[in-house]
Amino acid sequence: MDLYIAAFGFGLVSLSVIAIAAVGFTMQFGITNVINLAYSSVMISSVYVAYAFNHAGVSIWLALIAGAIFGAVFSFLLNRVLYTPFQRKGTSLLGMVIVSLATSLMIQNVLLAIAGPYNVSYVQPSGGTIRLGAIVLTVVQVLVIGIAVVLMLAIHALLTFTRLGKAMRATAANPTLARNCGIPTSRVIDVVWLITGALCGIAGVVAGMNSDTFAVGNGPGYLITIIAAAVLGGAGQPYGAMLGAVLIGEMTELSAAAISADYKEVVAFAVLVLVMVLRPQGLLAKRGALAAAG
């Protein structure tokens, strides 16, 4: 039993990582209508930017900020240089999926050429451990959970209490109507890419801090858990993504304790298929995968 309680503790950490990543991913889709399959590639690039700073002697927390800034700027540029022009050209949703997948492949391979295929890890203070019954977490892991909680509260506050958040929700609901009401939608979308890119970068770096080692090849694995969490909660729904992250994070860690850690992603995928078959609109969304493409 202790094994499962310990796994539940690890689940808290991985759900925090997934939540940060999945909220960014789902906001990109919900507000800008791009399924950004390059998300995981931006994420792993941020991991390596932070790694470069970290190994130059900068503390991991400053490196985390560097990773966040990199993720934000990179995502912003990705949208400005690639996605927006293709969308303006009238590329279909499917066309955008292909474009983003090709982009993902390119980013990943440029990174592979620069960083090499090796497993590396951050230099970080070991700090010690915190015990709570059978749950044993390192201080870093507890801080990761803390970062996730703060970020989720910040996203909630942004969407609920600020004019910018209101503009974002309006743009997500109906971009044409939002524009006609005087909302500068293209500027709103720029800000969305900056914010979600920062979330993407932070998620990458905390994922790197949470795992013993990481390599460029981890990218596709991130993407599967992120997509599973986002779709489970209802694609395009930030709160849905948070709920999806909680479920996927705990399920993958508990299954790792029960079966084998090799099959974590398979469990995430099984959940994804079940949701797509039984409830394609996700747990929270009223409309989602069932809506006509267009």
Partner: peptide
Amino acid sequence: LLLRRLRSDYQAIALLVLSVI
């Protein structure tokens, strides 16, 4: 499983994930 009810861009993603898995 995947082509029955889903929107076509969801289908593409589900098939991509299937390939990795």
